[in-house]
């Protein structure tokens, strides 16, 4: 295993922030840590990069224990949520900064930095001041500054959360491209499901400091392990016990003798959401917007196949 985390626990002011987390990351893999705010995902990242001391448990990188190593002594770099570029250095100086600790000469470091700028498609910004870059450009330089030192592991703490929607989409593609090109193992923290689905090889879902499930995006969606994962990832109509049905998995048919009645209709563009009231419960149903639509008050019949979670 490339990165191995075992029984990682962090207690802060008598509060268990992380509960005995155990997981691994394979070489070249992109693991996304997904969870709501305050679930402990940033603390987990902080334990991996060494800025937070763990209470118990171990972290191994390529078999070597690094649990107590100083951040500067780990072969791990981090891209922080705030861009944290050095304001008193220009773009090139920012990129070259980490190389001086690898005893790389100035000339060679500059050549590497220029190559990185090419990779980032920002060659014309060599001498630009950080203050003159846009948010997206700053984030790219922050990413390049971490990548240039060729770390064994790159950690990213919600790096795109401060960018607008369009830029975020293009940065996801950019990151995926760079990861594939450079073959770097990454752990990416986010609270955005779409972001997680778009870039992850596997997703680690966290809540209240505990791992709820680790799986691919499709597995998480189609086979949620428990109620938290079911409700956190996508929408679901919960039935008795562990049974559930996703809104898009319900077939809706107009039926004057049907037991269901549409009580709400929400237009979403590509899809339309309907709320249907049955004698026993209410369902949400998602249908593609393909012309003929149902109206509030229509009587309908629902057809669906019940799915089961592993546990509650």
């Amino acid at each position: 295993m490339f990165l191995e985390v075992k029984d990682l626990t962090k207690v802060y002011q008598q509060k268990n922030v992380l509960h005995q987390l155990s997981f691994g990351v394979e070489t070249g893999e992109m693991l996304v840590v997904l969870g709501p705010s305050g679930c402990g995902k940033s603390t987990l990242l902080s334990c991996l990069n060494g800025f937070t001391q763990v209470t118990s448990g171990t972290v191994r990188l390529l078999g070597q224990e690094i649990t107590k190593a100083m951040p500067e002594d780990r072969d791990i770099t981090t891209v922080f949520q705030s861009y944290s570029l050095f304001p008193h250095m220009n773009v090139l100086q920012n990129l070259m900064y980490g190389l001086k600790f690898q005893k790389i000469g100035k000339k060679a470091a500059k050549a590497k930095a220029i190559k990185m700028l090419q990779l980032l498609q920002m060659t014309e910004y060599q001498t630009a001041r950080i203050q003159d870059l846009s948010g997206g450009q700053q984030q790219r330089i922050a990413l390049g500054r971490s990548l240039i030192v060729a770390p064994k592991l790159l950690l990213l703490d919600e790096p795109f959360s401060n960018l607008d929607e369009k830029l975020r989409l293009s940065m996801r593609l950019e990151l995926r491209r760079l990861q594939k090109e450079l073959g770097i193992t990454m752990v990416f923290v986010t609270h955005d499901q779409q972001e997680a689905f778009a870039i992850a090889d596997r997703i680690l879902v966290m809540d209240a400091g505990k791992i709820q499930q680790i799986a691919t995006g499709a597995e998480l969606y189609n086979q949620p392990k428990n109620k938290f994962v079911l409700t956190f990832i996508g929408e679901a109509n919960q039935l008795a016990n562990t049974a559930y049905v996703r809104p898009e998995c319900i077939d809706l048919r107009l039926d004057t003798n049907g037991q269901g009645q549409i009580i709400q209709k929400i237009f979403q563009g590509a899809t339309i959401n309907y709320q249907v009231k049955l004698p026993t419960q209410t369902f949400w149903i998602t249908r593609l917007n393909r012309g003929a639509a149902f109206e509030v008050g229509d009587l309908v019949t629902l057809t669906y196949q019940v799915q089961q979670m592993e546990g509650k």
């Binding site: 990069n49 800025f51 500067e72 944290s84 600790f101």
Partner: peptide, 18 residues
């Protein structure tokens, strides 16, 4: 000072004096 600036430098390998 933005703590992440200091943390970034350390994350890139800078020791205390650096």
């Amino acid at each position: 000072l933005e703590p992440a600036v200091i943390n970034s430098a350390r994350s890139l390998g800078a020791k205390s004096d650096a």
